[in-house]
């Protein structure tokens, strides 16, 4: 209709930040992570088809001794699976470096002004071994990082939940309500307090099934919510822009004795 006008969908950048430290070799964590990501890709394509106004572009940033882009070019979601290479584990946990790399790509340019809030999913099984505070400061200084939907998945019990919580944002509830053993609370609501929004605490994945479900949730339900733009009144907290859907069930098969718990 308008040959000299470029009409286009709004870009939605979905970025996995994956811990590829040596500890991810243990217990089948790395194969489980690779499988979970691979399994989520076809469903992400379905989300893309259901939300044609958003152009979903996927990237993967791995961090071990340093942060390197595993898939550095924003790739249309339907083109990711054919070129997917499994992540490999080995080295330290340079999470701070990952945050600095991420900050660089969230600047404008290259980020488009008309882009939808990006979705950032941080997955880690341990504690950072570099200056993560400086990296996080660099990242959160970028406006697009503040606007982004930030999720964190802790693999196993050795993950640094405090750092993951800092990545997500301030803890819900005054004074920070933590469960026992540093785990997040569920959505049980006390009288007079607002319901806790799912995903506002690190998601704890202690087995491959739970990991897969959380990654599926992040890459489908959350992605679907982020694909539907909503205006927000200026000055409101960025996390009120994309209402996160409820978490998936994480039921262990009681008859499956082979399930490994990290």
């Amino acid at each position: 209709m308008f040959p000299d006008v470029r009409l286009s969908r709004r870009p939605l950048h979905f970025i996995f930040l994956c811990d590829c430290s040596g500890s991810m070799r243990a217990g089948g964590k790395m194969p489980s992570l690779n499988q979970a990501i691979r399994q989520s890709l076809p469903e992400m394509v379905q989300v893309s088809l259901q939300n044609p106004e958003a152009q979903i572009l996927v990237r993967v940033l791995r961090f071990a001794d340093q942060a390197l882009w595993h898939l550095g070019t924003p790739t249309p979601v339907d083109q990711v699976l054919p070129q997917w290479r499994d992540l490999e584990a080995g080295g330290l946990t340079a999470m701070g470096d990952a945050f600095r790399e991420l900050a660089a790509v969230l600047r404008t340019p290259p980020m488009e002004q008309r882009a939808l809030p990006p979705v950032l999913v941080l997955i880690s099984d341990g504690a950072p071994t570099d200056d993560v505070s400086e990296g996080l400061r660099t990242l959160m200084a970028e406006p697009w990082a503040a606007k982004a939907v930030r999720l964190a998945i802790a693999i196993g019990h050795d993950a640094d939940l405090e750092v993951l919580q800092q990545f997500i944002g301030s803890e819900p509830g005054a004074g920070g309500e933590r469960g026992s053993a540093g785990q997040g609370l569920d959505g049980d609501r006390r009288p007079g307090t607002p319901a806790e929004r799912p995903g506002r605490r690190p998601l704890q994945a202690n087995d491959s099934i739970t990991l897969a479900r959380y990654i599926q949730w992040a890459s489908t339900a959350v992605l679907g919510a982020a694909s539907q733009p909503r205006s927000q009144v200026g000055g409101a907290a960025p996390d009120t822009n994309v209402p996160l859907p409820d978490l998936p069930p994480t039921v262990l098969d009681p008859s499956d004795a082979s399930q490994v718990v990290w």
Binding site: Q113, R114, A115, L116, P117, P143, W144, A146, K147, P229, R230, S231, Q232, V233, G234, G235, A236, A237, P238, N241
Partner: peptide, 15 residues
Amino acid sequence: PVLSGGGEATLSLCM
């Protein structure tokens, strides 16, 4: 002008 809170942020009559 660009507001804090993101690309979807806007001023509103309800403010």
